[in-house]
């Protein structure tokens, strides 16, 4: 069975993920949606590192005398995921800036009604 400490940490990570997801769905401001995307990315990164930390105690830097390190593989995998998250956030912000310049607002409902009126 899972120990309670890891269970509590996992539930917190799930809360961060659902907060980001809810922000992408429910917020009407584009910038808040992009912040939600960044929260989603961070939650997945923390989950990977958390799961890798279950089997050891020390950081995976083998200075003399260190043994029983945590799993270094999830940390190496999420390094790529962090960089890709930065790229996605930058591209989303450029798109939001372009929408603001074209329509004058960040609010998704007003943008949708403006696009419907133009069509």
């Amino acid at each position: 069975m899972i120990e309670t400490f890891i269970l509590i940490e996992r539930i917190l990570v799930g809360a961060i993920f659902l907060t980001g997801f809810g922000s992408v769905i429910f917020d009407s401001n584009l910038v808040k949606k992009i912040i939600g995307l960044s929260l989603l990315n961070s939650a997945v990164v923390i989950l990977f590192v958390l799961e890798g930390s279950r089997i050891g105690e020390n950081t995976p830097i083998l200075e003399p005398g260190i043994e029983n390190v945590v799993d270094p593989l999830p940390q190496a995998l999420v390094l790529t995921a962090i960089v890709i998250g930065v790229c996605v956030t930058a591209f989303a912000l450029a798109l939001a800036r372009h929408l603001y310049i074209s329509t004058g607002t960040f609010d998704i409902d007003r943008i949708r009604s403006q696009v419907h009126d133009e069509n």
Partner: peptide
């Protein structure tokens, strides 16, 4: 390569 493409896409959009 992903980083390169992301930066190029954002520059083009700006």
């Amino acid at each position: 390569i992903v980083l390169l493409l992301g930066v190029l896409g954002t520059l083009g959009l700006v």
